[in-house]
Structure formats: structure tokens, C-alpha cells
């Protein structure tokens, strides 16, 4: 099941490198269980990254992103800024986590 999200934000000059690990099954909907019944799709469809509340990057994902997704990107930010990641999946579940750049 969907679980917590871990975010690391590291200053690199006037940029901040963000690395996130999300706990999510990322079930494609193409697989079948041992009795041959299709396993319903359950994957993150959207990830929104913001700095101090302002959206800087939006990702649209398919079930082809690996289970427990890893996502790395860089933003223009500095020490003390708050970086928030929010994901929404195809069942409408969502998770949001904020870290302060140290």
C-alpha cells in the first residue's frame, strides 16, 4: 500500500538537488494474479513540486514508473526554503511532504 515519502534536499550553489523516494505499489493494471484475475491499476498519476508554496515542476506519470518511485530533479532555491512534494494516484489517494533546505 501507499506509504510515507522521503525527501532529501541538498544545496548545490544557487540550486537545490531534490531526491525523493515514494512508497507506492505502482501497479500497471496489466498484470494478473495467481488465479489469472487482472490486478487493478494503482499508480501515481501526478507529482507536484513546489518551493515555498509556488509550483515549480509538475510530473504526469504512468504505471511504467517503477514500484516505490525514485524521482530526482533540481530547482532554483536556497537554504531555508521549503520544498514540498505531493503525489496523487489514480484512486484519488494523495500524499504530501515538506522539507526545509538545510
Amino acid at each position: 500500500m501507499a506509504g510515507p515519502m522521503r525527501i532529501r534536499a541538498q544545496v548545490n550553489g544557487d540550486e537545490v538537488n531534490v531526491r525523493a523516494l515514494m512508497a507506492h505499489p505502482m501497479e500497471t493494471g496489466f498484470r494478473k494474479d495467481s488465479s489469472g484475475n487482472p490486478i487493478p491499476a494503482h499508480y501515481i498519476t501526478e507529482v507536484i513540486a513546489s518551493v515555498n508554496g509556488k509550483t515549480v515542476l509538475t510530473a504526469e506519470w504512468s504505471g511504467a514508473i517503477s514500484t516505490n518511485p525514485y524521482f530526482e530533479f533540481d530547482v532554483k532555491a536556497k537554504k531555508g526554503d521549503k520544498i514540498t512534494l505531493k503525489w496523487i494516484d489514480n484512486k484519488g489517494e494523495s500524499k504530501e511532504e515538506t522539507v526545509e533546505v538545510k
Binding site: 500497471t28 514508473i65 530533479f73
Partner: peptide, 22 residues
């Protein structure tokens, strides 16, 4: 479904992304 991901960037995001796919 060939499309795996689309990333929409604002000028505050650098044009580099890294992830893992199936």
C-alpha cells in the same frame, strides 16, 4: 503504453529529471 512520463517545468526548475522505469 509507450508514454511513461511527462515533466512540465517552470523556469524555477532545471531541465534535468531522473527516475526509474519498468
Amino acid at each position: 503504453n509507450p508514454l511513461a512520463a511527462v515533466f512540465h517545468l517552470t523556469p524555477d526548475a532545471l531541465p534535468r529529471v531522473k527516475t526509474r522505469v519498468k
